[in-house]
């Protein structure tokens, strides 16, 4: 199962400010009444984007100038709370291919990496600066360079962090680990026998 090698993500960006944005906020639980992930995209951030009657609230994701954004800029501890993969799935289906936050909750980080979404960590002032640049020019292209890793925007470059294991697997096209896990089945059986309870 050959996967695409993800060396960089580039595109328009949108800034959703806030710390501790939890996965309930990214995809409210009621939209998880489903047996496939299809169609989740339109419900990303639903309750902060929509009024009761379904009309739009003022929100960066409703701003037509941000339409087609592929990079999400946000605050710290992004994706905390529930382990629901519905959250990164909804973001992916809404068109996001990369995230820049100050920090991430662990399960969300892993879930996103498995979908091939690089989760970059950057300093708060840098994120704010990029957000301001994008605010001034919505068509500005932001580039997440997985190799370095670094964020480039206009003629500026920013330091970013990406956990080695995630970076390695994105670059090698092994971000979904299932193929490699299956390759290890013989050793799995061995370990199970040794443990004697599995």
């Amino acid at each position: 199962m050959a996967l695409e090698k993800i060396t960089k993500v580039e595109g328009k960006a949108v800034y959703v400010p806030g710390d501790d944005i939890d996965t309930d906020r990214i995809i409210p639980a009621r939209f998880m009444k489903c047996i496939t992930f299809d169609g989740l995209g339109e419900f990303a951030f639903y309750d902060v984007r929509k009024n009761d009657d379904g009309s739009d609230k003022p929100h960066p994701l409703n701003d037509p100038r941000r339409a087609g954004a592929t990079i999400l800029l946000t605050g710290s501890n992004f994706g905390c709370g529930s382990s629901r993969e519905h959250a990164p799935q909804a973001l992916h289906k809404a068109g996001f291919r990369g995230i820049v936050a100050e920090s991430y909750a662990e399960i969300f980080f892993g879930n996103s990496t498995t979908l091939g979404i690089p989760c970059f960590s950057a300093a708060r002032p840098d994120i704010r600066e990029i957000a301001a640049a994008v605010e001034a020019d919505p068509d500005l292209v932001v580039e997440l360079d997985v190799e370095t890793p670094a964020i480039r925007c206009g003629d500026k470059a920013y330091r970013a962090e990406l956990r080695d294991s995630a970076r390695n697997s994105l670059l090698a096209g092994r971000w979904d680990p299932i193929a490699e896990l299956l390759e290890g089945m013989e050793k799995v059986e061995e370990t199970a026998r040794r443990l004697n309870y599995v």
Binding site: I107, N111, P177
Partner: peptide
């Protein structure tokens, strides 16, 4: 460990998962 759905698939298929 709390895990996401792709990892549920991994554990179903292999009884293992990839972890840091």
């Amino acid at each position: 460990f709390g895990i996401g759905t792709s990892q549920v698939r991994d554990v179903l298929a292999t009884q293992t998962m990839a972890l840091n």
